[in-house]
Design a binder for these strands. Structure first.
Lengths: 179, 179
DNA sequence: TATAGCATGTAATTAGTTACATGATTAA
DNA sequence: TTAATCATGTAACTAATTACATGCTATA
């Protein structure tokens, strides 16, 4: 059984109805982008690997003269996805937020620049919250109407989390201004 | 000017008083671990690069018969760090949380397993909150006594953020149980 | 006397990004 | 007719992890 989580992103997107590599990447852009981004250069080789491992099957489905490969999850693929969803394996979450690293090291800056930095971080967090509410939640709620509800739950979770972060940083900015 | 953020983690840790590669990695383990983890295999080559670029200087400072390299930030290094702290460049934050990817794809599971998954995610988030409050906040508050206050601010931010996530997921678990 | 921690690194591998290359179709 | 979008991929590079290798020192 494959261990890369990217495998399951691809398998899961196929299951949600994105049948080409192009569609999988585009679907990730409007759903998993903020907690699991991907790229064409990851998706296409991954699809090829999954086909070799018989977790998906490929068929030609050209649109006019434009070639197109449509993929479908096999029984084995479905089982692998379910096994991964149920597995208790907890890879340590990775945040890697450059902004927080800056915050951590902000003592090197004069007070004025510290405040400006916190302001920028708050704005960035708010901007992401807005993007999720504007671009991601609506798409996910559309999906929810056909019974697939976890994308919408995840989108709301992400928006609330970034919103909380933005509130927290705005409060900090206020405290720095008064200190 | 180097563009890898890991450069600034190393530079910043040196500035905070960790003078060897070993000490930098250990300091990251009790401070930046949850938003910017690192490893020996990253820190040592990075120090060598920084020395070549004259952003740090190296001197031998053996402890008894045990060899040890002590590094110090140069004027150029200090300037590079400050420039990076002030730069508005906003690398898109990367979450890559396997657990949230599972949540996103949870529609593939029967209701009982969905609830178990959300329960596990909530526990994981709570566990990280506890680790930050137990292991990271106290160390950072020690630093704050000598005037370096942003590590403690960052630690509290992390703890509050994971705490919020845990609360949110616990609430979701309750809703799934009643639905 | 042996285990945990200090200390430094390299090698091999895997993962991920950026840039490049190509060409069809559709809507303004 | 031209710009945007659909569609598929490869090549080169950078980043990061895991495993390996070595040896000292303090303490239980």
């Amino acid at each position: 059984m494959p261990v890369r989580s990217s495998t399951y992103l691809v398998l899961g997107m196929l299951r949600l109805g994105a049948s080409s590599g192009y569609a999988i990447k585009k679907a990730a852009d409007v759903s998993t982008r903020f907690f699991w981004a991907t790229s064409f250069a990851q998706v296409y080789p991954e699809l090829a690997r999954l086909e070799r491992e018989r977790l998906v099957t490929r068929r030609d489905e050209p649109r006019g003269a434009r070639r197109r490969s449509a993929y479908q999850v096999t029984g084995d693929g479905e089982r692998a996805l379910l096994a991964w969803l149920r597995s208790p394996r907890q890879a340590p979450p990775q945040f890697r937020v450059e902004g927080i690293l800056r915050l951590f090291l902000a003592d090197a800056l004069p007070a004025e620049d510290q405040r400006a930095l916190v302001r920028r971080l708050a704005d960035q967090a708010r901007g992401i919250e807005d993007q999720i509410r504007g671009e991601i939640v609506p798409v996910a709620e559309e999906l929810a109407r056909s019974g697939t509800r976890f994308p919408a739950i995840t989108a709301r979770f992400g928006a609330d989390l970034f919103g909380f972060g933005a509130d927290w940083l705005e409060r900090l900015e206020g405290e720095l201004a008064c200190g």
